[in-house]
Nucleic acid binder design. Sequence first.
DNA 1: TTGTATGCGTTATCAA
DNA 2: TTGATAACGCATACAA
Lengths: 334, 334
Amino acid sequence: MAVTIKDIAKVVGVTPTTVSMVVRGDKRISIATTEKVQKVIKEMNYRPNYIGRSLVKGRTNVIAIASGFFSNMFTVEIMRGMESKLIPTNYRINQYATRGIMEKEDDMFREILYGARPEALICVSLKPSPEIIAEYNKEGLPVISVEESAGGISTVKTDNEKGAFMAVDYLVKKGRNKIGIVAGKSAGSPGSANSYERLKGYKDALTMHGISFNPERVVEVADYTFEEGLEGFNRMLRRDALFDAVFCAAGDMTAAGIIRRAEEKGIKIPEDLSVIGYDNMVIASIVKPALTTVNQPIFEMGRSSIDLAMDLINKKETVKTITFQPTLVFRASA
Amino acid sequence: MAVTIKDIAKVVGVTPTTVSMVVRGDKRISIATTEKVQKVIKEMNYRPNYIGRSLVKGRTNVIAIASGFFSNMFTVEIMRGMESKLIPTNYRINQYATRGIMEKEDDMFREILYGARPEALICVSLKPSPEIIAEYNKEGLPVISVEESAGGISTVKTDNEKGAFMAVDYLVKKGRNKIGIVAGKSAGSPGSANSYERLKGYKDALTMHGISFNPERVVEVADYTFEEGLEGFNRMLRRDALFDAVFCAAGDMTAAGIIRRAEEKGIKIPEDLSVIGYDNMVIASIVKPALTTVNQPIFEMGRSSIDLAMDLINKKETVKTITFQPTLVFRASA
DNA sequence: TTGTATGCGTTATCAA
DNA sequence: TTGATAACGCATACAA
């Protein structure tokens, strides 16, 4: 078994209390005993057991991160941002993947809340139910949503409406007027705030330019993958409407799929078809032609969400929304 | 505060012990009380606190995963495999990123061992020091290394020598004899088993075909990124040696960088230069020309490492090495 | 079938 | 400056 505070106490000839105080750097213990205790701690390679500590303190020093998957590039980048902010703190992160299984989501959130007892919950591209939010509030645990919004919780996001608007506005100014959109599932309803907002920005830009919205030009997609881009473009070809541009609100990976399939069909980009992606990931500069895309400061969003979580934990903030600004990155595809 | 077994006990009018037994499904409790207790548990939304449970059981139901970064595609894919295996268990994963800071690595492993107390440690592309291995052994905690090997611990890997050999052998058979290699840092020494083994496979293939090894044809790279591919190719151009092929043992992303820079320099692939990558990631089929590459069953390796961890935890296995077989995936770049 | 007593490793309060 | 005691939430050996 591992060395405990008791073992140290026995060896030094003091009580566990004294050792505990030394461990925590309490100044009331004399320098002499402090040194003796520290020596034995080093010799016996003692480290405090977080479990015991958490139990009595009622704090776990853990922030829970929930997401559908932790394997997509967006989430990975968010995580990187989070981790970079975590270094100087003594907080750690626990990941929970819902894997898109909505039915079990509430259950998972309860397991986290009552079982794991983190000090805050950050949801990435995920929207906790009102019941869950109520329960977290009741327990005094702050909830933050990244790239989604729900009533009563804090949010870190980039202005999706604006990002979409900028992209479509740019396309129109380039002379395009048969602009399609590849949007996340259920973009039609406000179920997914994210997708809904981008679709709204798309519509607004069309409206502003006097172009009527045509549902035939909307293609929905679930997982933001390359394959969905290939397949999504096929679906567009089968539609009655024509296209001279695609705004792929479902990320650069899917946009890459669109470019690939278009090219296979002999369609020239950007001559015959303009394509704009979303997120400005590495892939955007790798594809040929390089992808014009809407940049989100994803890494910064991750960092910011940890800052906000810490402030909420320390009651320095109450429910708050942080909105980042998107920018358009001009490359060759539009 | 959250509901505890005491609260339930008080409401039902039994002792905490009885509630505890009901929670764990102990058959000794009468059906009548069991039902009464379960009813209140549901009403009050009680869930067992893992902290309390862990403390008394001495088990945390946590497997610790350590890696330099969790943001590269290889690790992400490993994690996906792990998660897929974790679902039916009641085990969870905790991530620990060293961020390549070697000096603090041992310290981190000790924090994990004594502080967090997982039931097993899985290192991804990371090699714990002999001291750490000794300490984990002493505490009876199994250690598994994925894609690396070290004395006295279990390993899950794909045969790197063979993978490299296959790639280079294929290039030679295609008529290439000025074959460069882009290898992970310190491939020259057995410090990183992974890189060393691939370099060895490369050399062996050359030797077998009577081609002498030329150190001028080795380019080292640290982070397996696209940018390193761009820059690595520049370095190759400055070398005295000529190249008619590149085996990029540093992954497909770096290979994509090589292809891009070569193309920018007007070099035709595969006519002027054959390129083979490693890992068979999504990017390999996205780049143009599509990348011929060495496939590793990364997802499977992740799954396998969890299986092995569970077996080691349950003492169904002792130190063991699982080796997967690489395959060559033929596309357009070689 | 249920309850009592004890302990897991640590911290906190109070007393000495 | 140090120690005794109780507590955190739960599980378990043993007693009733």
